[in-house]
Amino acid sequence: MSIASDKDTLAGQMMAVSAIVFGAALLTILAAHAFEQFGGYAPCPLCLQERYAYYFGVLAAVIAFFAARSETFGFARLVLVLIAIGFLINAGLGVYHAGAEWKWWPGPDTCAGGFDLIWGSDGIVDTPVIRCDEAPWHFLGLSFAGWNAVVSAALALVALFGATRRA
């Protein structure tokens, strides 16, 4: 196999990994916003923190894609490693959050949030308090936080796979 085709193969693999991370991270963050906007599920402060990795991952995956396309493989690898680290940390945060929901350990003392304040006609705030230690939704036994841990771990592995590709 020639060096040119090795570079093309490597570029293709790294671009594919970047595209997968981009698509999955974007889809996940859009789903989170859809649950919030259309499903009425207000995020708690930990939920909002868990979104940071997705915002970073979407942008960084674009950067890694174009770095691989221009055959700047060292830089593409670095960006993919940073994506993997971000999603591994986020998976840990998701496990912590899910554990607090299952009452395996206490959540943060200051974990309450919700929608913007809504004043009732009697002048009393009528806004739900969203707690980090109460899961409002489950699917296949996992809450939003649990699914975040699963998706984040998977995205970390995909990014790490891309970072380890060699010509």
Results as ranks from 00 to 15, higher is better:
107 G>E: 09
130 I>W: 00
50 E>N: 07
157 L>W: 08
97 H>P: 09
8 D>Q: 13
52 Y>Q: 08
7 K>M: 03
108 P>A: 13
122 D>T: 10
140 L>A: 12
85 I>V: 15
47 C>S: 05
122 D>R: 03
123 G>K: 11
23 G>P: 07
80 L>N: 06
9 T>W: 08
7 K>E: 04
79 V>K: 07
134 E>Y: 02
37 Q>A: 14
31 A>T: 13
50 E>P: 04
42 A>G: 00
90 N>R: 09
126 D>P: 00
163 A>P: 01
14 M>R: 06
87 F>M: 06
80 L>D: 04
120 G>L: 14
32 A>P: 04
105 W>V: 07
125 V>H: 03
166 R>T: 09
109 D>I: 13
39 G>P: 00
88 L>Q: 11
2 S>A: 12
67 A>N: 07
30 L>F: 03
165 R>D: 07
99 G>Y: 09
90 N>Q: 06
13 Q>K: 15
98 A>W: 13
11 A>V: 11
148 N>G: 00
81 V>K: 10
90 N>M: 12
111 C>V: 12
56 F>E: 06
89 I>C: 06
122 D>Q: 03
76 A>Q: 05
50 E>G: 07
58 V>C: 06
121 S>W: 02
122 D>I: 11
27 L>K: 03
71 E>V: 14
20 I>F: 02
25 A>N: 09
132 C>F: 01
136 P>Y: 00
49 Q>L: 02
158 V>G: 00
23 G>V: 04
76 A>Y: 05
25 A>P: 12
59 L>Y: 10
70 S>K: 15
104 W>R: 01
8 D>G: 12
165 R>F: 13
131 R>P: 03
113 G>V: 12
152 S>M: 01
63 I>R: 07
138 H>D: 01
10 L>I: 11
92 G>L: 10
31 A>L: 08
89 I>P: 07
119 W>E: 01
121 S>N: 01
103 K>P: 09
104 W>E: 09
44 C>V: 00
57 G>C: 06
84 A>L: 11
31 A>S: 12
102 W>D: 03
6 D>A: 13
157 L>E: 00
91 A>V: 05
84 A>K: 11
125 V>N: 02
62 V>M: 15
167 A>H: 01
40 G>C: 04
5 S>V: 13
144 F>K: 04
15 M>C: 12
11 A>W: 15
80 L>V: 05
155 L>M: 10
154 A>Q: 08
128 P>E: 15
113 G>T: 11
49 Q>M: 05
85 I>G: 05
56 F>C: 08
63 I>C: 03
64 A>N: 07
13 Q>L: 12
59 L>V: 12
94 G>D: 06
166 R>G: 02
37 Q>K: 15
121 S>D: 09
120 G>E: 10
48 L>A: 06
163 A>S: 04
11 A>G: 09
34 A>D: 00
38 F>G: 02
22 F>H: 11
145 A>E: 01
101 E>C: 03
2 S>L: 15
124 I>P: 01
146 G>H: 05
125 V>F: 01
125 V>I: 12
88 L>G: 11
60 A>W: 12
103 K>M: 13
